[in-house]
Amino acid sequence: MNMFRFLGDMTHLFSVLVLLLKIHTIKSCAGISLKTQELYAIVFATRYLDLFTDYISLYNTVMKLVYLGSSLSIVWYMRRHKLVRRSYDKDQDTFRHHFLILPCLILALLINEKFTFMEVMWAFSLYLEAVAILPQLVLLQRTRNIDNLTGQYVFLLGAYRSFYILNWIYRYFTEVHYVHWITWISGLVQTLLYGDFFYYYFHSWKNNEKLQLPA
C-alpha cells in the first residue's frame, strides 16, 4: 500500500460519505443521477465477487463492504425512501445507461486477463466504472446550477482515480512485473472524462463564483 493508493481510497470513501451525508441529512438527492449510482452498484458488485474467496487484508475487505453497502444504500434511498425519491428529477436523468452496460460486457469478453468468469467480471467492472460518471455529468450539464455537495462529490470522485494513476506509476517503477493494462487504460479514460468538469470546477473555485457548466 503506497500513499497515492491510500489517498485515492480515502478520497473515494469521502466522496461516497459526502453523498450519503447529503441524502441522509437534507433528505434530498436533487442533482444526483440515479443511473450513475446504479452503475456504481453494478461496478462494485462485479468487482468484489472475490470478497469471500480471496482474503487480501482486513483493510481491503472492510473497504469493499463499505463501498458495496454505501452504493446499494444510496440506490435504495433514491428509489425507495419516500422523501428522497420525491427530489429525484427522473425526467432530467435520461441517459440510457443500459447502452453502457452491453458494450462494456462485450469488451470484457474480448479483452480480459484470462477468459474466466471472475476475470471477465473484473474487466467488465473496470470498463463500466470508466463510463459510469457519464449520466451524472450529463445531468449536471442539464441542471446547470450545481449545489456545493454535488460539485464536491463529483470532484472527489474524479480526484480518486487521479490518485490511482499516480499509484500505478509508482507501482510500475517499484514492483517487478507490475503491469495491468486493462486497469491503467480504463482508469485513464475515466479520469479524462472528468477533464472539462475539473476545468470549470477550478475556475469557479478560483473566481469564487457559483459552479456553472456551459450548456
Binding site: R5, D9, H12, D50, D54, I56, S57, N60, M63, K64, Y67, N112, E113, K114, E119, W122, Y164, N167, H177, Y178, V179, H180, W181, I182, T183
Partner: peptide, 10 residues
C-alpha cells in the same frame, strides 16, 4: 496478457 495477479486494489 500475463497470468492474472491477485487483485489487491479496490
Amino acid at each position: 496478457f500475463h497470468s492474472p495477479q491477485l487483485k489487491d486494489e479496490l
